[in-house]
Structures are given as structure tokens and as C-alpha cells.
Nucleic acid binder design. Structure first.
Length: 279
DNA sequence: AGGGAGTCCTGCAGGC
DNA sequence: TGCCTGCAGGACTCCC
């Protein structure tokens, strides 16, 4: 699914066609996704002007006039597709359609329906149940080694699992955690609380760099992520370890001994790493 | 309290 | 070709 870079890419794409425009029509083709839509969601959105489209963690944050906020999450397979108006009926997985006053159609498509869409008041957004426990934004300057060290302190869980915990750091998912740990040379199996400040600092740098690189590439297109304009992201070509089990480890210092990229399962999720390079 | 397993849902790839 | 199994970018709930 969309992790932080993919959601950022989607937010930027939507901002181009939504900001400053009003929703002429919003149509829901089902009652909800992972959670039910607010009962009168379509009606409450219709006629509103979009002030901004942004992102908090993996949530799309659409601010509308009158202090209304639409929170969206794309789950594992959600997409926001921009197109012109069409006469064909919506597809099986086209759940919500937004039409702006200038005739641009945005379709929320989500085959697995793990995503969500809901509304809240701008003033209550930070205390919203979905966001209130959210950790710091990794690309903000305030996210540094001291902050991450404090979050990891005393944690017995593997660092891989800790970084997936949205309350510790917001927005990281399976791909970018694997890639960041590889860049930092840290084993995913290390106990989170055992990391020294001298290891956490390069980890923070690796997290920021991998996310920035991915955003610059338009995110990663695996099965589902496409930019709203239909273009593919291409950061998947930059993966060093994710999905590369059995392949040679790139730039491995122990190259002659290196057995290659390994796949293990941690907390039910695939982890890809190089045992020679990551310690 | 904290962490891991099971769960939601559909699509796709690979093996037989 | 077709069926079956396993796996997938997330995150919540339950249970230990």
C-alpha cells in the first residue's frame, strides 16, 4: 500500500485539481470501507470548496471551507484516480466519486477495501481517534536522533516492528522500514531498545533520505500505487532489499561472503535484509 | 502494559 | 485451462 511517499504523491496530485475548487457532486457507491462512511458524507461535501490537500502520516487531509476536514486512508490497495467525466458505470471497486465544479472526476478505487474516508472538524483533527496517538512526522526537522531514541527506549520488540508502529514514527510502512534499515546497516532483528545513539542518528538520516528519494521518484508502483494523474512512481527500481530475496546484496562490504538478501517473517510481515551488511 | 497473532477483503502469481 | 495455496504496501482487536 501507499506508505508516506505514496500518500504525499497522491496529496500533491489532488491539490492540483482540487485546491480552490468546489465539489459539484460527491457520490458514494457503498456504505463504507474499513469503517462506515459518515451517514451524510456526500451531502456534507457537496458544494464545499477545497482549501488545501495535505498529508498527516499515511492519511490524506483535505481541508474544506467552513472548517470541515475529510480524512482519507488508502489502506493496502487504495487509489485516487483523476480523469475527465465519463459515461461508463463505475467499476466494481470504484467506491466514491468526486466531481469538481470544473468537471474533473476523482475516483476512490480500493479493491481490498482496507482504506477509509471520514469527516471531522478542523479544530478537532489532532484529537481525532485516528490521529491522536500518531507519532512525529519523520520529514519534519523536529524528528531527530534524540526523539527516536526516546521513542525506542526500553522497547524489547525488534527495531523492524518498532518502526512500523505509527505511534513511534508516523508514515513508515514495510517497504521503507526495510530500505531504511538496510541503508543504516542495522539488523531488523535488533532489539529496539538496544540501539545506541550512534546508531540511531544514521538511522534517522536513512529514514529521511529514503522517504525523500521516494517522494522525488513519485513513490513506488507495485501492484496498486499509481499517481493520481495515472503516471507510475518509479522508486521501486531503487529498492535495495525489498522484494529481492535470494538476489545479491548491492554494495555489500562483505561481498565475497555475502549470502545475498534474505527474507524472514517478523510480526507476520515480510522483512528483507542482508545479514552480512546489517548488524 | 506491551507485543504478537488473527482478522478484514480481493487479486494475482506460481505450482500441480 | 483450472484449481488451490500463499502472499500482498495497513492497522485494528483480541489474547497471552
Amino acid at each position: 500500500m501507499p506508505e508516506l511517499p505514496e500518500v504525499e504523491t497522491v496529496a500533491r496530485g489532488l491539490s492540483k485539481v482540487w485546491e480552490g475548487r468546489r465539489f459539484a457532486s460527491v457520490v458514494c457507491h457503498r456504505a463504507g470501507l474499513r469503517i462506515p462512511f459518515p451517514a451524510d458524507m456526500a451531502r456534507r461535501l457537496t458544494g464545499r470548496r477545497v482549501d488545501s490537500v495535505g498529508r498527516r502520516a499515511k492519511y490524506l487531509v483535505t481541508r474544506l471551507d467552513g472548517g470541515l476536514v475529510m480524512l482519507g486512508h488508502l489502506g493496502m490497495s487504495g487509489r485516487m484516480v483523476i480523469s475527465g467525466l465519463r459515461n461508463t458505470p463505475p467499476g466494481r471497486h470504484d467506491h466514491v466519486e468526486f466531481i469538481t465544479e470544473d468537471g474533473v472526476l476523482v475516483t476512490l478505487t480500493d479493491p481490498r477495501r482496507f482504506g477509509l474516508l471520514t469527516l471531522c472538524d478542523a479544530a478537532e483533527m489532532d484529537s481525532h481517534p485516528l490521529l491522536k496517538d500518531m507519532g512525529p512526522e519523520p520529514l519534519e526537522p523536529g524528528f531527530d536522533a534524540g526523539v527516536l531514541a526516546a521513542a525506542l527506549m526500553g522497547k524489547a520488540t525488534p527495531i523492524k516492528s518498532a518502526l512500523l508502529d505509527q505511534t513511534l514514527v508516523a508514515g513508515l510502512g514495510n517497504i521503507y522500514v526495510c530500505e531504511a534499515l538496510f541503508r543504516a546497516g542495522i539488523s531488523p532483528q535488533r532489539e529496539a531498545g538496544s540501539l545506541k545513539l550512534g546508531e540511531i542518528a544514521p538511522l534517522v538520516t536513512a529514514i529521511k533520505n529514503v522517504l525523500q528519494d521516494a517522494i522525488a521518484a513519485g513513490g513506488s508502483s507495485l501492484k496498486d500505487h499509481v499517481r493520481p494523474d495515472g503516471e507510475l512512481g518509479y522508486f521501486q527500481h531503487e529498492f535495495k532489499v525489498y522484494g529481492r530475496a535470494g538476489q545479491r546484496c548491492p554494495d555489500c562490504p562483505g561481498a565475497p561472503r555475502c549470502p545475498g538478501i534474505q527474507r524472514i517473517v517478523q510480526a507476520g510481515r515480510s522483512t528483507f535484509y542482508c545479514a552480512e551488511r546489517q548488524m
